[in-house]
């Protein structure tokens, strides 16, 4: 991999980690999800600094080209994250529904 490209990606990953810490500080992202994303970024950082790891593992698994493995992993990972997102949204919807129902019943009982 070209050195300039590697430096660019490293800077991008560092900016990623920095912005995650910033949104955690602003309480726009919970610690739990911050950990997910930070882990992903740091993992990618390691792979960019030591590209040999990717080549080695891809060879071991029988990929013709090392990037193919990265794409496959990335797609699976994104699928997984989006799926988790849907689960979280569904849970929130249920909680939200419960809150609206209980609050509305309470408001009615109060009026009596």
């Amino acid at each position: 991999m070209n050195l300039n490209l590697r430096i660019f990606i490293i800077l991008l990953m560092c900016a990623g980690v920095y912005s995650i810490i910033r949104v955690i500080k602003k309480k726009n992202l919970s610690m739990k999800y911050g950990l997910y994303w930070t882990t992903i970024f740091i993992f990618m950082l390691i792979l960019v600094i030591f590209p040999g790891i990717v080549e080695y593992v891809a060879n071991l698994c029988g990929f013709k080209e090392a990037p193919n493995m990265l794409f496959l992993i990335a797609i699976f990972l994104l699928f997984y994250i989006v799926f988790r997102l849907y689960i979280t949204i569904s849970k929130l919807q249920e909680i939200n529904k419960k809150l609206v129902q209980e609050l509305s019943i309470l408001k009615k009982d109060n009026k009596k």
Binding site: K97, V100, S104, I105, K107, K108
Partner: peptide
């Protein structure tokens, strides 16, 4: 005799509110 839901929940959530009230 009315319960005014503070947000729109859709038919399922609305009807369920009635069942919760009936149960209580």
């Amino acid at each position: 005799n009315v319960i005014n839901l503070v947000n729109n929940l859709g038919i399922g959530g609305a009807v369920q509110t009635g069942y919760i009230y009936a149960d209580k």
